[in-house]
Write a protein that binds this DNA or RNA. Structure first.
Lengths: 362, 362
DNA sequence: TTGTAAGCGTTATCAG
DNA sequence: CTGATAACGCTTACAA
């Protein structure tokens, strides 16, 4: 056989994609034998045959169709992931871990963004079902997540990420929010703050927020100081500013501090404080949930509760793979990570607070 | 037929997924007829039949297998997207636009992260090929991207995102980097800065960086002021600090300013400046590429060149869909967006610069 | 060690 | 209007 240049040899034919039959013909064997080669059954093939097929595959630059394989065997090696907000740094960081772990296990991730809309979430789940995903990683869009089971086959392995359902029928991977909130609260109280407020988006139907609210109330009660939970609708322009202004105008119970219940809330809090000319921590101390790349850059640095997001991503896939391995016959399992308080200037001791103005205000 | 409770009626059978045959049996028709229903051929079906099938589908909560459909028709309705860095806010913002547009067109996105490694990129492309994606959105990992064509069927529609190849064989969607860089440079010169430096990750093999370098040199030459391009390897601890220190220690040619060639470089620049105690813009003015959520929060606010990322995401999918529609028979097309300079305090006029210390330094 | 043939869940092409 | 039947590309008994 005259061998052309490598470039020519490897050119992929235009038009119909090469199939197992093309390879079989070129190698002078049957499809079945090629299939055995593809499944790596080297014990059962003669060395000569193996080599022939190997060459044919290389020459044709052949890649078996995962579609056809899936149809036959029922294994798509596809995992679906639906997040409530792709632009949330938390989601992205988790996604990275999940992606890595999927690749390691030979699975492909199909990522979707519900944008926080339960309706869109339902649509996406239906779409993923059509692709016969083998497992689902779900970061619930919000209230209404109870309908998830209806949209999916009852035996589909599901792992809930960050937010869970009351039922407890699914695996779950997330943070110990109560403990994390307790640590944050005690840190502030320990630093002399006496009038605390938790800023959160509307709690209803979102487990994370509810838990963080609970942890806050508990810790505040234990410390015997003032603590209010304030729900802020971030879609409403100026809502955050109004909430902060109201808090600052309240009766003087001692040094004031806020805890922002999510990365987005942290951002909006700092923005609003800047607009109101509130100094951090002089006028108001701040602790934020979720470590953000800019946490150390703003003002005196923002104290945050960091989550091990990459590890969470790995854990969520592992949880799914474990379930896959047992054909979904295991009890629902929760994997709970611990947050880590990263202390910076925004929560410095109340007395010692150097009254630094936010930069850029003069 | 006795009807159970809705909940019971809709329960999805465990075990084998329901197929078109189940629906056909329940509706008392043939699979072919069900298939016609699924393809929406209402003109050709009797109203009674239509209704029967409709009921059966609902009762069984049936969803046709996209896998089987793909195998038959060759249309997977799957689009692959490989990005160099999922954690880059640019990528995420584009992803959001792309995702929305895909959903609108009834396509599903399979997202992969090459992590900037050309080897991993090759692996991912091979994986996507197995799934018979109909189109590919590719944000090249870096040097070595020339091998992409080999990994993919020659007739696969490809759109390059942000970074392109010299060959120009593919569609491309990205920014007019030369113009954007020119605007940034002229802005700084206009505000009295005379000694400029462009901070970028190593240019070699990454078109965006090369173009930004080019645009910088051109603009600086046109303005007749000093301008150096400094390549910084961000993986090396302290490299950014060293580069900045060296720049500051150079001969006095007038007010100094840096342009950070990407969002990540901006972050590292500001971090290093803070570590070195450099005031912004007093000691050093800053303009950064890519608008970041925290741009307005740090110091006096960071002047940035904002990209219309969401629109870029939409454009990249549209470009692909257009190519899909013409069976890949169109000439390679480039869609170039224009950056927008968002002016903030970090590049305030050199004379008028209020010497604000980064907050938190005392 | 290898080949033959059935079947995975659809759609499309025929007939009827 | 509807029903058989043959693909689609692959895997897997079952034979040889």
């Amino acid at each position: 056989m005259s061998r052309g240049s490598p470039a020519e040899e490897y050119r992929i034919p235009v038009g119909r994609a090469t199939t197992i039959v093309d390879v079989a013909e070129r190698a002078g064997v049957s499809k079945a034998t090629v299939s055995r080669y593809l499944s790596g059954k080297s014990e059962v093939l003669s060395e000569a045959t193996w080599k022939q097929i190997e060459d044919a595959v290389a020459a044709l630059n052949y890649r078996p169709s995962q579609i056809a394989r899936s149809l036959k065997g029922g294994h798509t090696r596809l995992i679906g992931m639906v997040v409530a907000d792709v632009t949330n740094p938390y989601s992205v960081a988790v996604l990275k871990g999940a992606e890595d772990e999927c690749q390691r296990a030979g699975y492909m991730l199909a990522l979707c963004n519900s944008g926080g809309s339960p309706e869109k979430e339902q649509l996406l789940l239906a779409g993923l079902r059509a692709y016969r995903i083998e497992g689902l990683i779900l970061n619930l869009a919000g209230p209404g997540g109870e309908k998830v089971p209806e949209a999916m086959p009852a035996d589909l392995p599901v792992v809930l990420l960050d937010r869970h359902l009351p039922a407890g029928r699914f695996d779950f991977v997330g943070l110990d929010n109560i403990a994390a909130m307790g640590e944050a609260t005690r840190h502030l109280v320990g630093n002399g703050y006496r009038d605390l407020m938790l800023l959160a988006e509307p709690l209803r139907g979102v487990s994370v927020r509810i838990e963080r609210g609970l942890g806050f109330r508990e810790a505040v009660a234990a410390a015997g100081c003032s603590g209010e939970v304030c729900e802020v609708d971030l879609r409403q322009e100026g809502a955050m500013g109004a909430a902060l202004a109201r808090f600052m105008a309240g009766p003087d119970r001692g040094p004031r501090a806020v805890i922002a219940a999510s990365g987005l809330v942290t951002l909006r809090t700092v923005q609003a404080m800047q607009a109101l000319g509130l100094r951090m921590p002089g006028d108001l101390a701040v602790v934020g949930f979720d470590e953000l790349e800019w946490s150390s850059l703003v003002g005196p640095g923002i104290t945050t509760i960091a989550q091990p997001t990459y590890d969470i991503g790995i854990a969520v896939v592992r949880s799914l793979l474990a379930r896959l391995a047992t054909h979904n016959m295991t009890e629902p399992r929760s994997t709970i990570f611990t947050g880590r308080l990263v202390v910076r200037g925004s929560s410095a001791p109340a007395g010692a607070a150097r009254h630094v103005r936010p930069a850029g205000e003069g």
